[in-house]
Every structure is written in structure tokens, then in C-alpha cells.
Simulated assay, not measured.
Amino acid sequence: MRKALIVWGGWDGHEPEQVAHVFKGILEKEHFDVEISDTLESFADQEKLLGLDLIVPVWTMGEIKSEYAKNVLTAVQNGVGIAGCHGGMCDSFRTNVDWQFMTGGQWVAHPGNDGVEYTVHLKYSSSMLLEGIEDFQVKSEQYYLHVDPAVEVLASTMFPIVPGPHSANGAVEMPVVWTKRWGSGRVFYNSLGHHADIVEMPAVTEIMRRGFIWAADGKLVSEQKNGASAQQNSYTGMVDNNY
């Protein structure tokens, strides 16, 4: 059975405990063994993290010890998936640039605050991860993020919807859902999820379900590749020894 760790906390306005339990339900339906924690001390044991298939951060505007962040980054680099949403993943630790480098982006603004009505546009790309999900409307915060150019964008939204100083730049297509790689690990992010009711929207729930599975599957793919590489190296060595 695949193992997932959900760690929630930080700013209460994002309803981290409620969102964590929504995610737990999604993962358990996919037959994950799920542990929920409300402390960053859960990132202290690197060996335990390396034994996971998936890490799900639900932590906003916190401070993380450098060794804890390093443990998570190392686990993901070695094949453990990481997946999350909204400020729970890309506004977790504003002073830790390594975390931002791994996750692929950082929140900087949400013009109009909560209650902005906008469209999420699903994009065609080399990934079929969100195939079949239609464009949909949401009424929530519209995240403006600083985004790593290495990410693969799977869904986006258009700015500006709400007037402001950013409007002077004209139309901007902002990523909403993306994937990226961190070493052997898979990274999945969805900027929707200001409150638990947004996560429970059918389209958002389905996006997160697929993202969790995709990120976790990277562990097995990484192990298979490493095993095949080791087998090939062993075979090559045997041939060399015969000469």
C-alpha cells in the first residue's frame, strides 16, 4: 500500500485542518495509507520521509527549520512525490527559497481578494493528466504567482479580472495547475483551494485526485528506472569481465 503524509498548519484562514481531511478522504479512496500531522516536526525524520510515496503540504505562511526543508527536498529528489494546492504549498514558507525552487512558484498577490469570479482554462500539452476535464468557473481568490519557467502548465487563468496597478501590463495568462520535476521526484500544484469548499468542487477534487496519484506514481517509476540501470550496469560488467 502506498504511503502518504499530510502536514497541515500555519494560517487558519485557509482552513488547513478541513482541507487536510478532504485530501485524506481522496487518498484513502485510492487505497493510500494516510498519516495526518499538525506539526512540522514530521519533517525531522529523513529516513521516514524517504519511505513515503507522497508528501502533501497544507501549511501557509509558516517558518520551517532549514534541516526540515532539506529533508523534504532530499526525499522528493529521491523519488517521493509532493502535491498540494493554493497557499498550502506555494505560500508555505516565504523565507525559504529552496522550498519555492522545488515547488515551482510563490504566491505574490490575489487582486480583488476572495470572491473574484474567473474561468480556469484547461490546456493541451504533452501531459494527458487532466484530459477530459472541461474549463470551469470558480468564485474565489485568483492567485497571481511568480512561476518557475521549468513548469509544465496544465491549466491557467487570465488577468486582469479586477482593476489594479497590474492592469497596465495588459492581458496575462497565469498558471493555475502545473507539474515539474525535482530530481527523481514529481511535483504537482494547483493554485485553487482558498477554503475547503473550493477543494470539494468536483472539478478541483478530480484535479487533486489525479495530481496525487501522478506524483506518487513517480516513486515506483524512479525505482524501476534505477533497478533497470543497475541491472544494465551489472550486465555490462559481466561482459567486460569476459574480455
Rank of each mutant, 00 (worst) to 15 (best):
R209P: 13
V199L: 14
S234K: 13
L130Y: 06
Y235Q: 06
M1A: 11
V153E: 07
D135N: 15
E35C: 05
E17C: 05
Y118H: 11
D53L: 01
T119Q: 14
K29W: 02
C90H: 10
T60H: 08
S127M: 06
G25E: 15
I198K: 00
S42V: 00
D45H: 05
H194V: 10
L49E: 13
D197C: 05
D12M: 09
S140Y: 12
H31K: 14
I133H: 10
L27W: 08
S126K: 15
G115S: 08
M102T: 09
V108E: 11
Q232G: 00
S222N: 03
T103N: 12
D98R: 15
G211E: 04
G62Y: 09
G25M: 05
L5E: 08
H31M: 06
K3E: 13
D135R: 05
I82G: 03
S37R: 15
E28Q: 15
V80Y: 01
G112R: 09
E35H: 07
W11M: 07
K65H: 12
S234Q: 12
M102Y: 11
T179G: 01
T119G: 02
Q77S: 14
L130G: 09
G183L: 12
S125T: 14
K29P: 06
S42G: 06
W8N: 01
E63M: 07
G237M: 05
K180G: 03
R210L: 08
G132H: 11
G164N: 05
V19K: 15
V22A: 11
E41V: 00
P175E: 14
S229Y: 01
D12S: 13
T39G: 11
G25V: 06
Q106N: 10
Q100K: 11
P57S: 12
G88S: 10
K139E: 15
V108R: 06
L130H: 06
V162C: 08
N169H: 14
F43L: 14
A196M: 06
Q100E: 13
L220M: 09
E17A: 11
I36L: 15
V151L: 07
D217R: 04
Q137M: 13
N71H: 13
V58K: 03
S66T: 14
E17Q: 14
A216M: 05
H21A: 00
V120A: 02
E200T: 01
Q232I: 06
L40N: 01
S125H: 03
M201E: 06
S37M: 06
S66P: 04
G164Y: 08
G104K: 12
S222A: 15
I6R: 03
S126R: 15
H14W: 10
V138F: 09
N71E: 04
Y143K: 03
S92Q: 08
M61S: 13
Y243K: 04
P111C: 04
D38E: 09
N71D: 02
A75N: 04
G79P: 07
S125R: 00
N78W: 03
G51H: 09
T179K: 10
K139G: 02
V34E: 08
P16S: 09
W182F: 13
G183A: 12
Q232F: 07
E63P: 00
Q106L: 13
